[in-house]
Computed example of a mutant assay.
Amino acid sequence: MNDQTLLKYYLNMQEPEAYQWNMSPRSLYLEFETRDFLSRNFEVFVGMKACNIGIGVGKWDDYLGCFLKGNGQLNEYRY
């Protein structure tokens, strides 16, 4: 796979109307701060349940799945 093919693949993963916001420095900073807050203030335990409410490209689902470390359950609600 060459660089152009890889770039095209990643660019096509994003929804057109949200892509610029999702990649903006403000969005990335907000994501960093939110993940930092979660990791500092919540302790994962066996049987923990998490729910991702909202829309998006699935990055929070990926993060929450890793955060739970196989000890809990992740549900999502999309509208």
Results as ranks from 00 to 15, higher is better:
Gly56Gln: 01
Tyr9Ile: 12
Leu11Lys: 14
Trp21Cys: 05
Leu30Phe: 04
Phe67Arg: 06
Leu64Gly: 03
Glu76His: 11
Asn71Tyr: 13
Tyr29Ser: 04
Met1Ala: 12
Phe45Ser: 15
Met13Pro: 00
Val57Asp: 09
Gly65Asn: 13
Glu43Trp: 00
Ile53Asp: 00
Glu31Pro: 01
Tyr29Ala: 07
Tyr9Glu: 11
Arg26Tyr: 04
Leu64Ile: 15
Phe45Gly: 05
Lys49Met: 02
Phe32Met: 06
Gln20Tyr: 11
Pro16Asn: 06
Val57Met: 11
Glu31His: 12
Val57Glu: 10
Gln14Ala: 11
Phe42Asn: 03
Lys59Cys: 08
Thr34Asn: 08
Leu68Val: 08
Val44Tyr: 01
Ser24Pro: 06
Arg26Cys: 00
Pro25Ala: 06
Gly54Glu: 03
Asn22Val: 02
Tyr63Ser: 03
Tyr77Ala: 10
Trp21Ile: 09
Trp60Lys: 00
Asn75Asp: 13
Phe37Gln: 12
Asp36Thr: 07
Glu17Trp: 05
Ala18Ser: 08
Tyr77Gly: 04
Arg26Pro: 02
Gly54Tyr: 03
Thr34Val: 07
Asn2Thr: 11
Ile53Trp: 00
Leu11Ala: 11
Pro16Gln: 07
Gln20Glu: 09
Val46Asn: 15
Asn75Pro: 01
Leu6Val: 14
Ile55Asn: 10
Phe67Gly: 04
Phe67Asn: 04
Ser39Pro: 03
Leu30Asn: 07
Phe32His: 12
Leu64Trp: 05
Gln20Met: 10
Met13Gln: 14
Asn12Lys: 11
Lys49Phe: 00
Gly70Leu: 03
Tyr9Gln: 11
Leu28Ala: 10
Lys69Trp: 01
Ser39Thr: 15
Asn41Gln: 14
Leu64Pro: 01
Phe42Trp: 03
Met23Asp: 01
Asn2Met: 07
Phe45Val: 15
Glu15Pro: 01
Val46Gly: 14
Gln73Ile: 13
Glu33Gln: 10
Asp61Leu: 09
Gly54Cys: 04
Gly65Thr: 13
Lys49Ser: 08
Ser27Thr: 00
Leu7Thr: 15
Cys51Gln: 01
Tyr9Asp: 07
Tyr19Leu: 07
Lys8Met: 08
Met48Ala: 14
Thr5Lys: 14
Ile53Lys: 00
Ser39Asp: 12
Leu6Gly: 02
Asp62Arg: 11
Trp21Lys: 09
Met48Gly: 03
Ser24Cys: 06
Asp36Arg: 14
Gln4Phe: 09
Asn71His: 12
Gln4Met: 13
Tyr79His: 09
Arg26Ile: 07
Val44His: 02
Cys51Ile: 14
Gly56Tyr: 02
Phe42Glu: 02
Glu31Asn: 09
Tyr63Glu: 01
Phe32Arg: 06
Ser27Asp: 00
Tyr79Ile: 06
Ser27Asn: 14
Leu64Ala: 05
Phe67Pro: 01
Glu31Tyr: 12
Phe42Arg: 05
Leu6Lys: 10
Ile55Ala: 08
Leu28Ser: 04
Asn22Lys: 03
Asn71Gly: 03
Phe45Ala: 13
Glu76Met: 13
Lys69Asp: 12
Met23Ala: 09
Gly65Ile: 05
Trp60Leu: 02
Asn75Ile: 09
Leu68Asp: 10
Val46Asp: 15
Lys8Glu: 11
Pro25Gln: 02
Leu68Trp: 08
Gly70Met: 04
Leu38Lys: 02
Phe67Lys: 04
Glu15Leu: 10
Tyr63Thr: 04
